[in-house]
Design a protein around this nucleic acid. Structure first.
Lengths: 336, 336
DNA sequence: TTGTAAGCGTTATCAA
DNA sequence: TTGATAACGCTTACAA
């Protein structure tokens, strides 16, 4: 803070009232007489006063800030439109509130820095997105401040009774697979996401369910990593092992894009030879030709809902449920 | 801060020293006896003490935080790999320091919120990336705390004598255009970026320079907006007006991608019929087929350098120059 | 409805 | 080298 910055004290002096009164006006307390409110507000405007955040935080024990933890490589975080939507949803929920969002992408800030940040009272709560099986330290971090997870943290972190928002991954995968069968496809493979992430395992489970229910072979599985390149590689692998494949359920759109390129290079027509379904309905799906049939998950709603749940927590209210599961929808375009 | 959180006071009591001494140890002051340092550190570990950030900020008048202002739509910010690289560079420079980065994407946080954030002492300085001609309020914001711009703020904001880092946009555009001419192309068009951004005007200027120097027609100009769709549209426009065009310099890779699609749809072979050069050398360039010839700008270096300059400023040192210009390189791939 | 005064957890200035 | 003690700018009982 540059010297000369106006303080509560100075506003109080200018308005001819006490510091406490100015504080009340600033915080919208109802028990201040209209004339005083007016005088104070005039002084605030005249001095161009803005409350000092650190002082406020210290006195009120509230930072009015929320951290978004992304235990992911920064390039990955930016490359996947899915994250963009989640962040968008979060900021939309936060916008009308006084809370600000602080993004902590793990590769950028080392974990001990993150820990100090949370433990140092910089934020009142945290949102975790994209956690992996190995992220043991997230368990510790999520104990420091109230935390809401994006995606079930039970599967990969063994964290029970946590607050989380998830999409119906299993249901979405089931719907996609069922659609492929309905299309008459029988030799259906899948490209999974990074298997240390719950979304990957859940989507694989959904595919497998339907395949075995239908009495079809459920072993045409190739593992990707949720990136475009990973998807292309996995598709190549799958094609090598199962050249007669006639449909593929790919665990996200980015990988589906990669798969599309591989299929094209291999001379397979989509959807004539091989039908393809992705997951996310992100920009990656709409921005490709042929248009990708995919499972829509409302990533922005997910972000919104996570923030909403955390705000409940911070307000001292117990959310109705510790878990919110969002629906998915199959969006038919050209690839299946 | 949850009640029960250990404070300096408690550490002092546990170590049998004064508060001041603990503070010295925490801040690595050299004039503390080794034994005392030891005792204090033991107490810190035992209590799991982490200094309270707000208290520190209040007392030291330093937030140890930097804001990254992005006056851009959030979707746009995430969609362009260029920003990812800039952020990466910034975080890399910040990583070994005690500073943390707070991202403020403008559509998410309304400006008055941003203003309060800066004026409230939440951060010690700011980095501005992707500013537009209309962003008058940035002028005000950049007066609140020490600020370093990414890109020359003179052109669009009329801000003189500011600190900024820029890439040699004119030089890059010149090199690209010269290369096209060297290739034997003569009817060379350009797709510009959003003309309210300095990078767009500078790149257009570079193209125009070379074209007129070579005595070629420099009127085949179509305006895009730096997005993939915008590039596709602009290319369509250009093609309609100048069907005989044999090369295009596109002001960024994302638009070049869009242009590539348009050209394909129009039955033009790239580079046989129309040669294409982009700008950025981002993921968007390498991740496309045919490989995009482009002008490489080191976006991560740009971020790194901006952060570096700001740190100088915050350390109270006057940077050697108020301006750092980074070089560009032409990267030859398949499209030209 | 308003004011007084005691913190909030640090840093920083003096003395010792 | 260490310790008191006064800020830092605000919130919040408690009085008035």
């Amino acid at each position: 803070m540059t010297p000369g910055t106006p303080t509560l004290e100075m506003v109080a002096a200018a308005a001819g009232v006490s510091r406490a009164t100015v504080s009340r006006v600033v915080n919208g307390s109802p028990k201040v007489s209209p004339q005083v409110v007016d005088a104070v507000n005039r002084a605030i405007v005249a001095l161009n006063y803005v409350p000092n955040r650190a002082a406020r935080t210290l006195a009120s024990r509230q930072a009015m800030a929320i951290a978004l933890l992304v235990p992911e490589d920064i390039g990955r975080f930016y490359a996947d439109p899915y994250f963009a939507s989640v962040v968008k949803g979060i900021t939309e929920r936060l916008e009308p509130t006084d809370y600000v969002l602080n993004l902590l992408v793990s590769s950028s800030d080392p974990r001990h820095k993150t820990r100090r940040y949370l433990a140092g009272g910089s934020v009142d709560g945290a949102l975790v997105v994209s956690h992996h099986a190995g992220d043991r330290d997230l368990i510790e971090l999520s104990d420091i401040v109230p935390t809401v997870f994006g995606g079930d943290p039970t599967t990969m972190l063994g964290l029970r009774d946590r607050f989380y928002v998830d999409v119906d991954n299993v249901g979405g995968a089931r719907a996609a697979t069922r659609h492929l069968i309905r299309l008459g496809r029988r030799r259906i493979g899948t490209v999974t996401g990074a298997m240390d992430m719950h979304a990957a395992t859940h989507r694989l489970a959904g595919w497998r369910d339907v395949m075995s229910e239908a009495g079809l072979d459920d072993t045409a599985v190739a593992h990707g990593d949720f990136t475009s390149y990973g998807g292309a590689d996995a598709m190549r692998d799958l094609l090598a092992r199962r050249p007669d494949i006639d449909a593929v359920f790919v665990a996200n759109d980015l990988m589906a894009r990669g798969a599309l390129i591989t299929l094209g290079a291999a001379g397979r027509r989509v959807p004539e030879d091989v039908a393809l379904i992705g997951f996310d309905d992100s920009f990656a799906a709409t921005n490709v030709s042929p248009g990708l049939t995919t499972v829509r998950q409302a990533a922005d709603t997910m972000g919104w809902s996570m923030a909403d749940m955390l705000l409940e927590l911070l307000a001292g209210r117990e959310p109705e449920t510790r878990t919110r599961i969002l629906p998915t929808t199959l969006v038919l375009r050209e690839t299946a």
